[in-house]
């Protein structure tokens, strides 16, 4: 999922042109509406998310394939809710306590998570990371006691350095395999051999990064690349609010 989720692709679609703040707000609104929505509304949201992915030039099929492990997790949620929710038994088998209410609750939980994940993918796919960072900074600004600039920079750095740390981890694993780590039966020793150098390397990278940021005048006063909100953004927000009302209405 990482390759899809963290991959911004430039494009000239309406979704690419839309301000990141509106997209993040839409994600929050639909997620909140999803908490109170029933299955028909979630089904509608799922269809809309699919259409929007296609509109943003992101293949829905590719997204689903990229999310295969996430789908396995959702299947586990569905099964767990089916077997643990009390209600009317579907099968007359004592070792399979699946209930109709359980299936319903499981589908609701999995459906909500799926819709949120698809819309989240849509946002990351169609929005430049710097715009997301600026939007987070803008949205956090009114909240007291939260250092919005630092929070936004942390999010940006996290997105930037996840692939670097993963790549360092892969290199470390290859180096260990080259020195026959497979022959070591002790899982603790194997884990330590991977984790300790990786941790050390990550700390060194963090140190160098701090120096590099300092050298480039990083400080509290920065220009935020935020655009003014136009009629297009307001219109999109109205459509989103209307859609959320529809979701709640048909639930």
């Amino acid at each position: 999922m990482a390759a899809v989720a963290f991959g911004f692709r430039s494009g000239r679609t309406v979704l690419h042109a839309l301000d990141a703040r509106v997209k993040l707000a839409a994600l929050v609104f639909v997620s909140l509406a999803g908490l109170y929505a029933g299955l028909p509304a979630l089904g509608l949201a799922f269809l809309v998310a699919f259409c929007l992915l296609a509109l943003g030039r992101c293949s829905p099929l590719r997204c689903i394939l990229g999310m295969k492990w996430y789908l396995v997790l959702l299947a586990c949620v569905l099964i767990a809710r089916t077997l643990t929710t009390p209600g009317d038994l579907i099968f007359e088998l004592p070792w399979l306590p699946a209930t109709r209410q359980g299936v319903h609750a499981g589908l609701l939980a999995a459906g909500r998570l799926l819709v949120i994940a698809l819309l989240g993918l849509l946002v990351t796919f169609t929005t430049r990371p710097s715009d997301i960072r600026a939007a987070v900074e803008w949205l956090l600004r009114p909240i007291p006691f939260i250092p919005h600039r630092q929070a936004a920079t942390m999010i940006g750095l996290l997105v930037r350095f996840i692939p670097v740390i993963l790549s360092q981890s892969a290199e470390q694993q290859e180096a260990l395999r080259a020195r026959s780590i497979e022959n070591c039966r002790n899982p603790l020793r194997r884990t330590t051999a991977l984790a300790m150098p990786l941790l050390r390397r990550t700390c060194v990278t963090a140190d160098r990064l701090a120096s590099a940021m300092e050298a480039r005048c990083y400080g509290a006063e920065r220009t935020i690349p935020c655009r003014p909100v136009t009629a297009r953004e307001w219109s999109a927000l109205v459509v989103v609010v209307g859609f959320c009302a529809l979701m709640l209405g048909i639930s």
């Binding site: 430049r128 710097s130 160098r208």
Partner: peptide, 25 residues
């Protein structure tokens, strides 16, 4: 710096080039 990997802070090529000027406000 010598290690370009730990100097690049932007999530995209453009973002990294713009990082310094953004800091200069």
């Amino acid at each position: 710096f010598q290690d370009a990997d730990s100097q690049i802070v932007g999530e995209t090529v453009y973002d990294d080039a713009a990082f310094g000027p953004e800091n200069l406000n």
